[in-house]
Structures are given as C-alpha cells and as structure tokens.
Design a protein around this nucleic acid. Structure first.
Lengths: 243, 243
DNA sequence: CGGCTAGTTGATCTATATCAATCATCGTGG
DNA sequence: CCACGATGATTGATATAGATCAACTAGCCG
C-alpha cells in the first residue's frame, strides 16, 4: 500500500490544472517514505522534521501561534493533500507550531531531493509554488472573515471552505464529513470564545442549516450556508464547481 | 534615472540573504519598464496589468476585498520593494482589488520574460518564491493580530511591522515615516471601526508611545510599542536586527 | 462507580460598533 | 483675501456582539 502516498495531493492539483504524467512521476518518486503522528502530538517533535518536507496524507493538522498569556490562534488547517511545512524548505520559522488534531499519516519529501527536483524541473517548482500561493489565498480569505464577517458568517464560511477542500480529496460522504476539532479548537480558528462558538453552532443547527456533533459535520442546507457565508470558492482555484 | 528600479527590492532581499551579482543582474534586466499610478486609482484599470507583474518602487498600495454590504477588508499593504501581483503570474484572481494609496511608481516585469527566467534560473525562482512565502508569513501574523490581539495591541503591532519594512528599504527618518492611510483605511486594515481606531491612536499618543498625525508616524517609545504589541520580527526573516 | 473531557446554558460584563455632532485643514473659485 | 465645500479627525452617547465566569449535563473510559 505504499505506492499511493501522493494521491490526495494529485487529486487536489488535478482539480486545478492538467498534470502531465512526468510530473506525476516526479511527485511519486519524491514522496515515498511514510510516517505517522498521534493525535495531539506536536509536529516539531517528529524526528524527521528537520530533514524533510511533509505532505499530509491522512488526518487533520493545525498550524497555530501561542501567545504569552496563553491565547492561541490557529492560522491554518491542513487536510489530506496539503503540505504542512513547505515553507521550511526555505525559511526557518520558529514562531509557529503544528499539531496533529487526529492521527496523521505523512509522506516525506527529503529536503535535498526536493531542492534538486526544483532545480531541474521548472514544472514541478511552478506547481508547488502555486500550491503555496493558494494556501496564501486561503489565509487571505480567513483574514477577511476575521475582520469583516460576523461570528456566524465566519463559522459558516469556514465550513463551506473545509467541505470543498475535503471533497476534492474524497474525504466527504454526500454532505457529511468528519472534522476532528473540539469547539475549543474551532474557537481558536475563528478568534472567538468557546462559548460563543457553541452558540453559533446551536443557531445553525436550530435553523436547520447544518449540524456539527462530536466530530461529524453535516450540511443540511448548502445553499443557505453559502448565502450566510457569502461564500465564493474562486480563491480555491478549482477549474469547475465542486458542489 | 531609469537604472535603479529594482533597488528597493534588492535592498529588502539583502536583509534576508546574500544575493549573488548574477541574480542582481537578472532582476535588473527583468525590471526595466516604469509606470505611474495616481493616488486612489485602482490597479486593475492600469493598462499593463494583464501582461506584466508589477514591483512597487515608490508609494504605498493596498490589497483589499469588498463585500456585498460595503464592508471592506484590507488584506495587505505594499511598500517599495514589494511585488503587488506576483501571484497573478500563475493564478487568475478576480476576487481581490489593489488600490494605490499614494502616487505609486511601478517597475514592470513582462510575464513571458519572467516565465522564461524562472525556467532557466532556479536561483531567482527560489528568491521570488521565498518572497511570496514571507508575504504569506506577514499575512499569518495579521491573522493572529485579528484573532487574538486587542485593538490596541493590533494597532501597535501593525506600526511595528511597517516601521521595519519601511526601514529596510530606506523609507524611514529616524523613528518617523510617512504612511499615506486615512484612519478609515487603518480601520479596514485592522477590522475595526474608524472611530475606534481614532480612540486607540489617542491612547497611544496620550501614553507617549507614538503619534500618527496626517500621514506622519513617529514612534516615541519603541520599546514600549514593541511590548504592547508583543512584537517579534522573526517572521520578516531579516538576518539581523533592523532596529 | 468515579473522574475526565466535551458540550450546553445562563448571568453578567466589557470591548467595540454605530450614530451623531463638532472641529480642523486644505484646495478652489469668486 | 475670503467664503465655500470636501475630506479627515475628534469626541460623546448609546447599543450590541461577544467575552468571561460559573454551573450543570452527557458520554466515555478505566
């Protein structure tokens, strides 16, 4: 079963561009080693993290910053097909942590091999560069949500986004999907208090827009949810409608 | 005077890495044409914006998203040495606008030439990729500010960041610098109301931490300002202390 | 059964928004 | 030189979104 590690990555990329066979092969040859991480463990303590870039293959992880008085802000959620630390190939960043929110499976790209590959294949470089640009677009959208959307709209927007991101990598079942975040985690994503997240979830549940119990999200009224969030999936750069 | 267009870019990059002469030459040859934009004009209406990538050489510009009910969120501020639309080389994004906040001078990089350059020079590609990664790091820090810093801390953090970014490109005078944003603009950066921005400015002025009148910022007590903001410049990736 | 974690709810408090008025500055045309 | 309008800054009064505190419930796992 070791041959299929980059498949969620490739699934995601194919929603965006045509991927020639040669690039696919490059990615396969780059991502062969596999490693696991338990739920709750910090990514930095992973033994390999100094020498390789990690592609998340299964599970959900979060990037966050911790502040002096214990406040935490999650700045990104990683789902299968996402690189967790591509930037580390170039920039040393000590100020952010990554944590596995559920048991995670990673495919490793050796730094030296990646460096070599980017030097010889402008195509792959382009692909990875674009991927990081789209991650940035996602963050930009989060910024808009933080600044100018209400708590309810923000929450709705987050769910819309995650639904599509999970769907393109085949991690949804109709309008349902698993999302291993506690309400406290969600609060740290949205920049809200846990209590308020709970209330907003209740509101959406009450209006029969969506439910989120334990770790299971079900979108009951997709149109309404999009409407509340003013969700426009353009920034995810898919070539056609996902849902 | 046309020879010096990329100089703020190079100044910025040199705070981060050693730039070999060959790369410097590549950048010079890439960025030769010059264009102006009036304060207040939208970047998309610029004639060249379909065929070239634009490096801001002089002035300040803002990237923002407009929402249905008129709310606006500024997601990035561009200062001399910043590419305004590097992403457009790869991704079509219709959902964000860029506006010149003061009269702006741009150096243009022809898309085709840039494409060609990135195919032949892995070094330049790396440099530009890293630059976009650091832009993303800045956005990440903005996200933290939005989510988990108070209005006052957020404002202080913004000023700290802009001070350093302007300083490395030689746009500061001691602890003073020009920042052509109205309080309404600042509100749209911070995700606050104009009125509240005004109050926070007053508070910082009253405590003799900084002043911001008209378009002139003066930091009176740098240590205190950093303290309020919990500012750690690591994310800007400079190799040594700027201030 | 007990203790842990996550979710739920209510009461109260506070940061920030909104509304509205005033004031300062500056460019323009008379 | 002055009147004028426009734009931006400042301030106060009031409203509200969301935080904080505290209690209680429901699973779940040993």
């Amino acid at each position: 079963m070791e041959i299929d590690l980059p498949s969620p990555l490739i699934a995601k990329l194919e929603w965006r561009h045509d991927i020639p066979v040669s690039m696919r092969e490059d990615l396969f040859s780059l991502l062969k080693r596999e490693r696991l991480l338990d739920a709750g463990s910090d990514f930095k303590q992973a033994s390999w993290c100094g020498t390789a870039c990690s592609l998340l293959v299964e599970g959900v992880a979060a990037r966050y910053k911790l502040m002096s008085n214990g406040r935490r802000q999650i700045t990104a959620l990683h789902v299968p097909g996402d690189f967790v630390d591509l930037a580390s190939q170039f920039v040393r960043s000590r100020d952010y942590e990554v944590v596995a929110l559920s048991p995670c499976r990673f495919a490793l790209a050796d730094r030296d091999r990646l460096q070599e590959l980017t030097e010889h294949s402008a195509g792959v470089t382009r692909l990875l560069w674009m991927d990081s640009l789209i991650d940035a677009a996602i963050q930009q959208e989060w910024l808009v949500s933080m600044g100018r959307r209400s708590a309810l709209e923000h929450l709705a927007h987050l769910v819309c986004e995650l639904f599509l991101r999970l769907k393109v990598v085949g991690r949804t079942d109709g309008f349902s999907f698993r999302l291993p975040l506690t309400q406290a985690d969600v609060a740290d994503v949205l920049g809200l208090s846990m209590v308020h997240v709970n209330r907003m979830l209740k509101a959406l549940r009450g209006d029969e827009v969506m439910t989120w119990t334990n770790q299971n999200v079900t979108i009951v009224n997709w149109g309404r949810l999009r409407e509340i969030a003013e969700f426009d999936p353009d920034y995810l750069a898919f070539r056609r409608e996902v849902a």
